[in-house]
Computed example of a mutant assay.
Amino acid sequence: MLLFRFPLLSMLCAVLLFDFIQCKKVICTDYCCSFVEAFPVKLKALRSSYDKIRDYYESKDDLETSLFNRTILEHFKSPYGCSVMNDVLYFYLNTVLPSAVQGERKRKHKTPIDTIGDVFFHLKRELLKCRNYFTCKKPFEISHIQDSYSQMGEKGLYKAMGELDLLFNYIEDYLVSKRRKN
Rank of each mutant, 00 (worst) to 15 (best):
Tyr50Trp: 12
Val15Gln: 05
Asp30Val: 01
Pro79Tyr: 02
Asp114Val: 06
Phe140Asp: 00
Lys159Met: 14
Gly81Arg: 05
Gly81Tyr: 03
Gln151Phe: 11
Ser10Thr: 15
Glu74His: 12
Ile21Asp: 11
Thr95Ser: 14
Cys33Arg: 02
Tyr31Leu: 07
Cys136His: 02
Phe35Asp: 01
Phe134Met: 01
Met1Asp: 09
Gln146Thr: 14
Ile113Gly: 00
Tyr57Pro: 00
Lys108Tyr: 11
Gln22Arg: 12
Thr115Leu: 10
Pro112Glu: 02
Asp165Val: 09
Tyr92Lys: 00
Tyr133Asn: 01
Arg131Leu: 04
Ile145His: 04
Phe76Cys: 00
Lys137Glu: 07
Phe4Arg: 13
Asn132Glu: 08
Lys77Ser: 13
Ser150Val: 12
Asp173His: 11
Met161Lys: 01
Ile53Arg: 07
Lys138Met: 07
Lys178Ile: 03
Lys24Gln: 13
Gly153Ser: 05
Ser66Asp: 13
Ser177Arg: 08
Phe121His: 12
Glu64Thr: 14
Lys124Trp: 12
Phe4Ala: 12
His75Gln: 15
Glu58Pro: 05
Glu154Pro: 09
Lys178Cys: 04
Lys124Glu: 08
Val119Ile: 15
Pro112Gln: 03
Cys32Pro: 00
Lys155Gln: 13
Leu167Lys: 00
Ser10Asp: 10
Glu64Leu: 14
Gly81Pro: 06
Tyr57Met: 02
Leu167Asn: 00
Leu63Met: 14
Lys77Met: 14
Asp19Pro: 05
Ser66Lys: 15
Phe6Gly: 03
Ser143Met: 08
Ser49Trp: 00
Gly153Leu: 06
Glu104Phe: 13
Asp165Phe: 12
Val101Gln: 10
Tyr170Ile: 04
Tyr57Lys: 01
His109Gln: 06
Ser150Cys: 10
Glu74Asn: 13
His144Asp: 08
Ile142Pro: 00
Thr95Pro: 03
Lys181His: 11
Leu8Cys: 08
Glu141Ser: 15
Leu167Ser: 01
Gly162Lys: 03
Lys52Trp: 04
Ser34Val: 04
Asp51Tyr: 07
Glu163Ile: 05
Asn86Phe: 10
Glu141Trp: 08
Leu89Glu: 01
Val96Leu: 01
Glu37Met: 08
Ser143Asn: 11
Phe140Ser: 01
Leu73Thr: 08
Leu8Asp: 07
Leu167Met: 05
Thr115Ser: 11
Phe120Ala: 00
Thr115Ala: 09
